[in-house]
Write a protein that binds this DNA or RNA. Sequence first.
DNA 1: CCTGGAGTTGTCCTA
DNA 2: TTAGGACAACTCCAG
Length: 465
Amino acid sequence: MSDNPALHAAASAGQPVFPLYILDDADAGEWAMGQASHVWLHQSLSALNKDLGSRMCFFKGRAEKIIPKLAASINACGVYWNRCYEPWRIARDTRIKAHLKESKCRVRTFNGSLLFEPQDVLKSDGSPYKVFTPFYRNGCLTNAPLPRVPLQKPQLSDLYSANEGCTLAGLGLMPRLRWSKCIAEQWEVGETAAQRRLQGFLQTGACHYKEGRDRPDQNYVSRLSPHLHFGEISPQQVWHAARKIVVKDNSIGELEHFLRELCWREFSYSLLYHWPHIPRENMQRKFDRFPWREDRLALQQWQSGQTGIPIVDAGMRELWQTGYMHNRVRMITASFLVKNLLLHWHHGEDWFWDTLVDADLANNSASWQWVAGCGADAAPYFRIFNPVTQGKRFDPNGAYVRRYVPEVARLPDKFVHCPWEAPDEILKSAGIALGTQYPKPMVDLKESRLRALAAVKTLGSLPTD
DNA sequence: CCTGGAGTTGTCCTA
DNA sequence: TTAGGACAACTCCAG
């Protein structure tokens, strides 16, 4: 409710406000919201509705049908919303706008979810950035206007009452799966919870962020991504709260890295806006001939956390159990799928889309392209993560792996990331039977690394776009 | 137009 | 044990 520019403007218009949520995935195609998103959205709407005195109205269906009809039937003098950036939503909202304007209804849209809107961060020749660092340094920090100061929670004394639409339950967002209940229990959802998390992060995690953000075994990341995605907190609120700490404690070093991460989100949105096909098409077209393998079983092993590589399995199980995965581990698991298993990044993208509570088209697409190496400013191809090295470096005591892969929990630190290297008697005393109760590694890491290097070599280096 | 420097996130081998 | 270089060659971007 706070820093929500559309709501703020509606409340300032001097008329009763009719708060509306429409679940509309009609044009989303394969990017209709995933299961984990549904779970979060349900909780989030529930919290918001509570804050609004249970006066929200819910609809399911095509917004471009519902909004004009509703606006006419209640004789609305204005319609307000915060802009979305998914290609089909841009198209839909443009149609709604045109339709409403025809009927003389006032329409105003706002930036409610980005620090910098994609059309505002461009190179001096007017074209969009493809590389993060200049986007960040020159585009965001130097040339773009400063992120606006967050708006206060509006006075909503006069809410319009109408018996329209359906109940929240009527949206059908909570399937009666045990899984969705489990996910819901992991999180506190809603604006208040988001603010609490931000404050908690700024007080504890932020001062160790530079190094701490890479440690899945510790609690140094903000975990704000789902709150940001669903608009429970705005990046402006996060940005200004962090800047305040920077000024107060003179600690630009650690927080600088956090602000950078916020701008990575902006960069993803910019890429999606200017290259709307990135959810499916390689930005570097030469990757269209990449020799991906087809292997359903291998994909299932990856999805279910049964690869035999503890850090990969821990990540995939964390995802399944909590709807979230630590960022460092996202990179490791993604790299493993794409490089070691040579499975198409679309498979990983689809799985993350369905299981992450922070599933976000811009971030998901841009990040998978980056990992796969087909993105705009992709890493050099020879950067292939070794999951064992990564595990030892970023989960040095194996606490993370032990939490999610109890099969290896009793191994000494030295072997917890590579149980297949442990001598038989150590395996035995740790109660592990490799190949039965915990799998042997599904690929040889060294071999599969060489195979990935060879695969990229086949692309040659000539045509890039 | 040309030019030079730089580019999220690494790994492996060698001295 | 640790530090440094190789791993290629490309595109992007600012001046």
